[in-house]
């Protein structure tokens, strides 16, 4: 009995040690972060693997904050983030912020009878709704920009993300940039201190937002564009938003493209810039770069080389920027000039 047990322990120990010492076959990369990027990454990696069998790329949807933090600590090689890194973080740990694609966000609502219509909404009106100043759908401010629409006198239920999220970041940035009182109040970030509104509801993840909005009549929610198919399936309405030029525009490929192009020339070489509330008559106001946060000093040379190869492929027009990938999540490809900037950043990886 004793021998058997001793042997079993020895075998386990040996297995552990052998496992520990065993070298990996090929190189492995870890991508973790934004849940908006996660579906795209999955499509990318599945395809990339077919041609590049010698590299293993693991993808995780853990949230942008985790992505940035894991890229800094070296746990992950690619940290996916909906938001560029803040100055305070960059000062502690300088990282590359490499845009991979352009995403947008729609404002969804569930007003019985009106979901087939596209309501017009503006930043200040949304700020009013989310701060409790605008309580009913037939409020004067909403009615003014929706002449001819019969709005119900029902109480609005504002739904916000309860978990930390890049969606909250870009939504609150739109409110901040368009509404001074919001920028002095709650401000923007991946988690913000929402004003206390008696009807407000928190939801977890984009699926939670869709579900909550669908289940709650008279609610309003902000949802990542990769969930457009889901919100359509749930028969939610989505709004035309007032842009910097004062026009109401729907999130379409052309309005997202217009917004991105208007800020292309302003994008600095480190590519940390907000695309929110972009100038231009046709620009949709809530769009953003989806970033890969990468440490330029990749200690491991083999990992560094594979990382550069994958990121270069992701930016190639015959690689990751193909419509078959981006259309599935309703993202847009990067403008040529941004691809160049991104490639220059990739070249810095060692």
């Amino acid at each position: 009995m004793r021998k058997t047990l001793a042997l079993a322990f020895a075998a386990l120990l040996a297995a552990g040690l052998l496992g520990g010492g065993k070298a990996l076959a090929g190189t492995s990369l870890l991508e973790t972060g934004s849940t908006l990027v996660y579906p795209l990454m999955n499509l990318w990696v599945a395809d990339y693997q077919r041609a590049h069998g010698d590299v293993q790329i693991t993808t995780q949807g853990t949230g942008s904050g985790t992505g940035i933090s894991q890229a800094i600590s070296g746990v992950a090689q690619i940290g996916a983030s909906d938001a560029y890194m803040a100055d305070a973080q960059m000062k502690n740990s300088p990282m590359l912020n490499i845009p991979l694609a352009i995403s947008a966000q729609q404002i969804n609502y569930n007003i019985p009878g009106l979901n087939a219509k596209h309501l017009n909404l503006s930043g200040p009106v949304l700020a009013g709704i989310y701060s409790g100043a605008i309580k009913f759908w037939d409020d004067k401010q909403i009615a003014e920009m929706n002449k001819g629409v019969k709005l119900p006198h029902n109480q609005i239920v504002p739904i916000h993300r309860a978990d930390g999220s890049g969606d909250t970041f870009i939504f609150s940035q739109y409110l901040s940039f368009s509404t001074p009182s919001w920028s002095h109040g709650p401000g923007y970030g991946t988690t913000i201190s929402w004003p206390s509104v008696s009807t407000a509801v928190g939801a977890t993840g984009n699926p939670g937002m869709v579900q909550t909005c669908q289940n709650t009549p008279n609610s309003i929610a902000y949802i990542g564009v990769s969930f457009l198919d889901e919100t359509n399936k749930a028969h939610l309405g989505y709004a035309a938003l007032k842009n910097r030029s004062g026009r109401f525009v729907l999130p379409t490929a052309s309005t997202i493209h217009a917004a991105a192009s208007s800020l292309t020339s302003k994008t600095p070489s480190d590519e940390r810039i907000s695309l929110i509330f972009a100038p231009g008559a046709e620009s949709y106001p809530i769009i953003n770069y989806e970033y890969a946060i990468v440490n330029p000093q990749q200690g491991d040379a083999a990992k560094g080389a594979e990382l550069k190869k994958f990121l270069t492929w992701a930016l190639a027009s015959n690689g990751g920027q193909q419509a078959k990938f981006l259309n599935a999540v309703h993202f847009l490809p990067l403008p040529e000039k941004i691809v160049k900037l991104s490639k220059a950043q990739i070249a810095k990886i060692k």
Binding site: G16, L18, G19, G20, K22, L24, S28, L30, T32, V45, Q56, I57, T58, T59, Q60, V75
Partner: peptide, 16 residues
């Protein structure tokens, strides 16, 4: 443990 799309590598650390 994190998460990995691949078979576990048996390396005790640095591999989700």
């Amino acid at each position: 443990a994190g998460w990995s799309n691949y078979l576990p590598s048996l390396a005790p650390t640095h591999s989700p």
